[in-house]
Design a protein around this nucleic acid. Structure first.
Length: 489
RNA sequence: GGUCGCGUGGCCGAGUGGCUAGGCAGAGGUCUGCAAAACCUUUUACGGCGGUUCGAAUCCGUCCGCGACCUCCA
């Protein structure tokens, strides 16, 4: 492994060299969505960020097993809530079975991720498919004395755990603060302490999603599935656990506690947390109610958007910000990204037809080294893109005859752009709207007629053709030696 | 209230002790029948105040502003 990747480990709060437990294998787990309604663009950001991490690990030559769960067992608003879970609630609203809700929104999620050109995870386990394993994990935690049963529900004893372990290891919380600082919620009488969390909840009569357990009919606690499925498919500890920052506490903190208590091992060696997406400076959240759906972003059908943007433009836009920074959505920023994306893609096209010389005025190897260095520095995609743009300027200069490149360097550059733009960043060329072979032929004819007019200095006709085409959204550009055409956006 | 993070040029957004980030927009130029594209040049940015240092956007302190988490949320 000649490339040395460093990532910011949120568990140790330090940038660390990434060394897998069992190289060349890498086990990576990312908390997936709860499928009770449509994923919004903020959810997508996280999964796209980890798609890049996955792709880069593959680029480095690791054999990666990427597990991303689907939470299809509904969970309550909080441990005190005796009411319905989110999936059942939505099922009633849409008048269908809970599992229909889960299937519908899981499919929707897959469809969106496909449009964003995200690779599919190696395994996508369902929470409801691992009830037996979850019950067994609860039992293990009880056997170790870190959980207690009250009225058919099992709770994790945080205080007990904290006597021999560090409960706030990930989030930096102090258990004393948690005990004193928390709001008191109704109906938490079952719990010994407010910071304890449910491993298993007894199902009330109205609760639809329910399973048999040694403690009666109930359903698993939210945090449990990730500990269980992560260790089942990736071992303990595995290499990398990711998720949105909002999951750091309590979700991930609880995952760690459960694993240490039940399995006796740390859950994951490295933790990565992606930052939130904001709109007008405020975090996008399902509970905030400012959700922007991917479809709305693609077709512009939302008050916040002037018009639609191609999924690849959105993807490119996201990658211009580091995953750990907040990202604010605005029309201006999206439009700037759209232009930049077009510039990058055009540069890549030129790469196929560049003239070569005996010498290169810029080093292709050096550019590659810079791109690798940027990615190795905690997946710095904005840095990679900046370097790729430097390369585009070089490509354009060669195309203009103002710089030169050797055949060997050109091949390096072609591979570099192919690897980075398509494989690592996961971008794709945007399909022309309604281009077809016959359309190409027709335009070739029109362009050749215009060329004749130009040669006979009949500029009035030449300009008329260009203006008329422009009126139907096709622009002609007289470039060196040939004429190109493209659809306007 | 507790915990954590952030404030970079017109906008977006990297950088984290000295060396051009990059994109978009603006200005000037080259090229072109014109236009577009491309290329070159360009506007000398780092919230305020103090401190450490030969030197700070980068380290420390403090103040101001913004945000996240502490309850479900990527």
């Amino acid at each position: 492994m000649k490339n040395q990747l460093s990532i910011y480990n949120t568990l140790t709060k330090k940038k660390e060299v990434f060394e897998p437990v069992n190289p060349p294998f890498v086990g990576m787990y990312v908390c997936g969505p709860t499928v009770y309604n449509d994923v919004h663009i903020g959810n997508c950001r996280t999964f796209i960020s980890f798609d890049i991490v996955y792709r880069y690990l593959l680029y480095l030559g690791y054999k990666v097993r990427y597990v991303r769960n689907i939470t299809d067992a509904g969970h309550l608003e909080n441990d005190a809530d005796d009411g319905e879970d989110k999936i059942s609630k939505q099922a009633k609203l849409e008048n269908v079975e809970p599992m229909e809700i889960a299937a519908k929104y899981a499919n929707g999620f897959h469809n969106i991720m496909k449009q964003f050109n995200a690779l599919e995870p190696s395994i996508e386990p369902l929470a409801t498919g691992h009830i037996i394993e979850q019950i067994s994990m609860v039992q293990k935690i009880m056997d170790q004395g870190f959980a207690y049963e009250v009225n058919g529900s099992i709770y994790f004893d945080v205080q007990k755990y904290n006597e021999t372990n560090d409960y706030g290891i990930l989030s930096g919380r102090k258990i004393e603060d948690l005990l004193t600082g928390q709001r008191s919620l109704d109906g938490q009488d079952d719990k010994r302490n407010s910071c304890d969390f449910a491993l298993w909840k007894k199902a009330s009569d109205a609760h639809i999603m329910r399973w048999d357990s040694p403690w009666g009919e109930g359903f698993p606690g939210w945090h449990l599935e990730c500990s269980v499925m992560g260790s089942k498919y990736l071992g303990s500890p595995f290499d990398l656990h990711g998720g949105g920052m909002d999951l750091k506490f309590p979700h991930h903190e609880c995952e760690i506690a459960q694993s240490v208590a039940g399995v006796g091992e740390e859950l994951s060696k490295y933790w990565m947390h992606t930052n939130m997406l904001t709109i007008n400076g405020q975090r996008m959240g399902k509970s905030v109610g400012n959700s922007l759906l991917p479809e709305e972003l693609f077709n512009g059908d939302n008050q916040l958007m002037d018009r639609g943007y191609d999924p690849m433009v959105v993807r490119f836009f996201m990658m211009q910000t580091h995953y750990a920074s907040t990202l604010d959505f605005s029309n201006e920023a999206l439009q700037a990204a759209e232009k930049g994306f077009g510039k990058l893609m055009k540069g890549m096209q030129l790469l196929n037809s560049l003239p070569t010389s005996d010498a290169s005025s810029q080093s292709a190897e050096e550019l590659k080294a810079k791109c690798d260095a940027a990615m190795n520095d905690d997946i710095n995609t904005p840095g990679v893109i900046a370097n790729l743009f430097d390369g585009v300027r070089f490509i354009n200069s060669v195309n203009d005859g103002k710089a030169t490149i050797t055949k060997e360097d050109l091949e390096i550059l072609q591979k570099l752009y192919n690897d980075y733009v398509f494989d690592v960043l996961g971008l794709e060329t945007i399909e022309a709207e309604s281009s077809s072979d016959s359309m190409d032929d027709v335009l070739d004819i029109i362009i050749s007629i215009r060329q004749q007019a130009k040669e006979s200095k009949d500029y009035a006709t030449a300009d008329l053709i260009r203006d008329k085409l422009s009126a139907i959204n096709i622009s002609l550009k007289d470039e060196k030696g040939n004429v190109s055409w493209s659809y306007n956006e």
